[in-house]
């Protein structure tokens, strides 16, 4: 037998034995494989195209970050010339804080209240 024929014979026998090995898997392993396959196929059906929840979160996060960056840019670039950067950042914090916004909106009321508590004439100097 030539060397090439011997190799082909050897490879043929190897293939037969490997096929037999795969066919003679124990029933438990065969069941597990079948379950794995069915789960994989079911999971594949549930795939949700482009707009998956995670994708929505990413898009939402990106949109929020872009809006915040745009707002900051316009705020810094439309403020009066010569204003201090630190002050601008403080102003930005005031604008973005809801609690502080309420306070500043009601500032007139607090001023009136203070005047009333002190008495209408108390604030005046003689």
């Amino acid at each position: 037998m030539k060397e090439r024929d011997r190799e082909e014979y050897f490879l043929g026998k190897v293939q037969d034995l490997l096929n037999e090995g795969a066919e003679h898997l124990d029933p438990r392993t065969r069941d597990r494989l079948e379950r794995v396959r069915i789960r994989a196929l079911s999971a594949g059906e549930e795939k949700g195209g482009f707009f998956t929840p995670l994708r929505w979160i990413m898009i939402g996060g990106f949109a929020t970050a872009t809006m915040a960056a745009t707002a900051l840019f316009f705020w810094l670039h439309t403020s009066p010339p010569g204003a201090l950067p630190a002050k601008q950042i403080e102003d930005f914090e005031i604008i973005t804080s809801r609690e502080q916004m309420d306070f500043y909106q009601n500032l007139d009321f607090y001023r009136w209240l203070a005047t009333e508590q002190n008495g209408p004439g108390k604030g005046k100097t003689s």
Binding site: L18, A22, L25, T29, L33, E34, L41
Partner: peptide, 15 residues
């Protein structure tokens, strides 16, 4: 067809 394909190769893949 996907099921048939995976069923045909799963044992060899496992081995």
């Amino acid at each position: 067809p996907l099921n048939r394909f995976l069923a045909a190769i799963e044992r060899r893949a496992f081995k």
